[in-house]
Design a protein around this nucleic acid. Structure first.
Lengths: 115, 115
DNA sequence: CAGCATCCCGTACGATACTG
DNA sequence: CAGTATCGTACGGGATGCTG
């Protein structure tokens, strides 16, 4: 039996870590192919991308669709469950931007994918 | 110059990890002494507690007040900046609870500090 | 193009014991 | 009671090369 301190633990288990939230964030704007995601996420490794996608899929947040063709084509999209995270992720993102703006100096940091 | 993919990275830097969000969550209900927090957070180590508190303080989310007396007394409380995280943390927490409820079996997990 | 297998490393996290 | 100091380990994350 898994034990959590509070709901936060669970959420962090799902979108915590270095890439999960980011990838999910991208997918929330529409289905993407593997290569597309690779290009979008700055500096992510093939390994981490695949691993991240697998974990998101295992948690039921995204869906993986394969096209049987050569060369292979795979497309990822958010599930209904994944959609429910949208408002949460957006407020998280917004808070981070505000926080940075109010505590860092402008020339000390940069946000690559600010909207 | 620090580089972030998006605001999410920043937020996770502040409340990510195993304990930060939880401790902050407790403090949002009112000032607490070190020992109190230790008792509240299940299984946290002295080391991790202090470390977590230091990081939260360094990020300007909590305030540390020492009383010069023997035995020593220290009290932690959230700053105004920390307060701004309250709605965000709450929605994160709520989402985690909902997620668990809809994807786990009731006898497979437990949340210690569900409100 | 999409994915897997190795090998590797830093650090986040933890257990334990000790000071003022 | 609050905090430090050491030491050890597990795991998240990365570099590189190979398959269908």
């Amino acid at each position: 039996m898994k034990t959590y301190n509070c709901g936060l633990d669970i959420t962090l288990e799902v979108v915590g870590g270095k890439w999960k939230a980011l990838i999910l964030y991208y997918l929330l704007t529409g289905p993407k192919r593997t290569g597309e995601l690779k290009r979008l996420a700055d500096n992510i490794t093939q390994k981490m991308l695949i691993q991240t996608l697998k974990e998101l899929e295992a948690n039921g947040l995204i869906h993986r669709k394969t096209y049987n063709q050569v060369p292979p084509k795979v497309e990822y999209s958010v599930t209904e469950l994944g959609e429910t995270l949208k408002p949460v992720l957006e407020s998280l993102c917004k808070w981070g931007e505000d926080y940075a703006e109010s505590t860092f100096n402008k020339n000390e940091y940069q946000i690559l994918n600010a909207n």
